[in-house]
Design a protein around this nucleic acid. Sequence first.
DNA 1: GTAAGGTCTGTAGCAACTACAGGCTCAAGA
DNA 2: TCTTGAGCCTGTAGTTGCTACAGACCTTAC
Lengths: 138, 138
Amino acid sequence: MTDHVSGSGLLRAELARRTGCNLETIRYYEKIGMMPDPPRTPAGYRVYDPDHILRLRFILRARELGFSIEEIRGLLDLVDGGDQTCVEVKERTERHLADVRAKIADLRRIEKALSATAARCSGEAVPECAVLETLEGP
Amino acid sequence: MTDHVSGSGLLRAELARRTGCNLETIRYYEKIGMMPDPPRTPAGYRVYDPDHILRLRFILRARELGFSIEEIRGLLDLVDGGDQTCVEVKERTERHLADVRAKIADLRRIEKALSATAARCSGEAVPECAVLETLEGP
DNA sequence: GTAAGGTCTGTAGCAACTACAGGCTCAAGA
DNA sequence: TCTTGAGCCTGTAGTTGCTACAGACCTTAC
């Protein structure tokens, strides 16, 4: 079987390959409504298009950044539009923004501690405990 | 029962309260070796000190930032010392550093997309799909 | 001394995947 | 053509990382 189904569509394995996602996880995300039900071939095979790649990559990376499924659902709702008012979108966007900025701040602290550790390690001493104190900041 | 066990020690519930951690999760982290086995009272109650608070807060925040248990174990090994050589520590530190910097970069993209969304939303239009394209970067 | 509440252990349940079993589909080669 | 083999389907079971509960013990307050 080729991967070219009705022109530009991808089958599930090809979507998995292009996103680095586990094959079964795609089906799981469809089941819980994170990924839309894709069109099917007459035989029932799922057929994906480039938008699906974009969406799945976003979900995967957001997970790696520590967003829960529900948080990602919230971010995706911003994309999917729907019947939300502009005010609602704005409020939710700003909540997400605060969360994202807090994560960035914490990661910066970890970055600082790690690079200090690496620098000190260029000498001969094993570092003390800069890492643990990292997230104690203001 | 007070929370003052043998001077400055904390019982499990107090550690949970001060870190925001679920009570049972503390026991779980002990079981999988992320938290050290704490000393006990004669009756078998766990007694924690301020270092435990620090360590647990670090674990919790690292989880929120998307680090897996194994990755956090790696970060904590840097703290715990042990028989690792300086070169090993440095290599592992730099791998973590690369990972942290990639996360920061992605979060910055998300931040940008979200603040653009919020700004556009101050007008009247519902945003299109700036968010999804966020993690497509270079 | 007894009632209330905190701690203990072990075990069961949930969320988010991940893997497998058994069956159907399709393209290609003998 | 027909068969072989890789890929897809569904449903279900297993894994990881927690979270909640049950039943028993301990401690403080009345």
